Amino acid sequence: MEHVPNHFSEAFFKMAYVTSLFARKMVAAAGTGIAPKAALASVGLDDDAPWDPKVMIPAVAYYELLENMAKKVDVTELPVHVGASMRCDDYGALGLAWKAAPTLSGSCARIERYARLWTGVVSYELREGGPNQTLFILHRTGERRLGLRLSNEATLASVVSLCRQVCSVPFSPVEVFMQHAAPKSKAYHEDWFGCPVTFEADLDAVVISNEAMERPNILGDAGISRYLISHLEAELSEFNSPPPLVTQAKEAIAQSLNQGAPRMTDIAKGLGLSARSFHRRLSEHGLSFQTLTEETRRELAEGLLRDEQYSLADIAFLTGFSEQSSFTRAFKRWLGKTPATYRKSHK
């Protein structure tokens, strides 16, 4: 077992990253109950660095950050506060395209198509709802752990916040659906959304009246729209393949894990780079060596657990753990379940 099996490579390199902007806003909104430097450092971010939405962090690390915050402060209202604070300009070209669309329907359609430029864990769908209503649906796979649930609430609140910034009259959705259980009180949610919020629903979605969807946006501009769509389409065409350096680095990390935790200098040398150049180039993709290694171990573990020929002891060894118990603790931290439970659910 000196090498990672080749049949795993395709599934292994799916990226599961989110923009660091939400992490920074969550920490900032939490107030004095959270130590900002330590909280951001836990996901590989420097509190003193400029806020750059193009810097990405692993989704699992983001969920863990939210769960650790929930141990220290009351997070009932936090995701709504953060979603409400999001501005169109926070999203770069995608946010400008949202503003420049002729109607709210056009804005939502742009998010539906181009959101994957910002995140690998969320997608959106526009679907006909009840009479004269449209569902703007949030799709996010993964176990309904607390961090994912809080992230979903913030995302749905950000959708409504962005709608309010472009609508020519005060905007509130018809209803908001969330699949997870309600917090201890939903009064703040319903007050801010301005509509009923139904928890334990069949989907995560904002219900918008067709009248609101077809109302002209206050900043709609056909000329700017054409330019931005051209720009986003070009980005999308380049998006399908992960950066070669990231793919090569993850392959090298995976192959070295059975010798223990890899060192950045060794991986860089194998790629023909100095440690400094390797660090800089990873930073250009919004990554650190630590987060890349952690993500590689998790993805490798998930892939190997789907293959019955590998025992849990084998997988612990292949992912760089000296003891199976250490692997079990790490996997439970990543996905909220033990490796054995994960394997049973993926048979």
Rank of each mutant, 00 (worst) to 15 (best):
L271S: 14
E284L: 14
S42H: 02
K99F: 00
R297L: 03
S288C: 01
K99C: 14
F136E: 05
S237E: 15
A59I: 00
G220H: 04
V122D: 09
S209G: 08
Y342R: 03
A249L: 08
V159P: 00
A301D: 03
A23W: 02
Q179Y: 01
L162E: 01
V197A: 08
K250H: 10
G120A: 14
E2V: 10
P196L: 05
N132I: 02
T134M: 08
A30L: 06
S20N: 00
L304G: 09
K269D: 13
Q248W: 11
L257V: 09
G92E: 09
G31N: 10
S168G: 05
R280I: 07
E211N: 11
V18M: 09
E294D: 15
E200A: 14
S230E: 12
D202K: 12
L148G: 12
G223M: 07
Q248S: 15
F136Q: 08
R298D: 04
F171E: 00
G44Q: 06
N152I: 15
A249M: 06
R110G: 08
A268F: 04
T296W: 03
L117H: 07
S311H: 04
V160L: 04
A70C: 08
A275R: 14
A38L: 14
P196H: 09
A313Q: 14
I315W: 03
D266Y: 12
A301G: 07
S42E: 06
S237N: 15
K72P: 00
A157M: 07
L65Q: 04
W334H: 12
A70L: 04
Y62S: 04
V246T: 07
L271E: 08
A201C: 02
F177N: 11
S225R: 12
A181N: 08
T141N: 10
K186T: 12
E128N: 09
T76K: 07
L228Y: 07
L146Q: 13
A115Y: 07
L148N: 12
S105A: 13
H231D: 14
V73K: 08
L335V: 06
A182T: 09
M1K: 05
Y17I: 10
F317G: 14
P216Y: 10
S42N: 12
I208S: 02
A316Q: 10
I111G: 12
S20Y: 01
L21Q: 04
S42C: 05
N240E: 13
K72G: 01
F12K: 05
F13T: 13
V80D: 01
K25P: 00
F13R: 05
G130K: 15
P173S: 00
D74C: 04
A38W: 03
P183Q: 07
H189M: 09
G272V: 05
A70Y: 08
A340F: 04
F22W: 11
T119Q: 13
M26C: 03
A181C: 04
F327N: 01
L96W: 11
R276I: 15
L138T: 04
R144N: 06
S274E: 11
A316Y: 02
R280E: 14
S158Q: 09
A29N: 00
A261D: 14
F331M: 05
S345W: 09
N217I: 07
T141R: 11
R281Y: 14
M56V: 15
A97P: 05
D90H: 01
V121Y: 05
D221E: 05
M56S: 13
G147Y: 05
V60F: 10
K72V: 07
L126T: 03
A97C: 14
Q290H: 12
A340C: 06
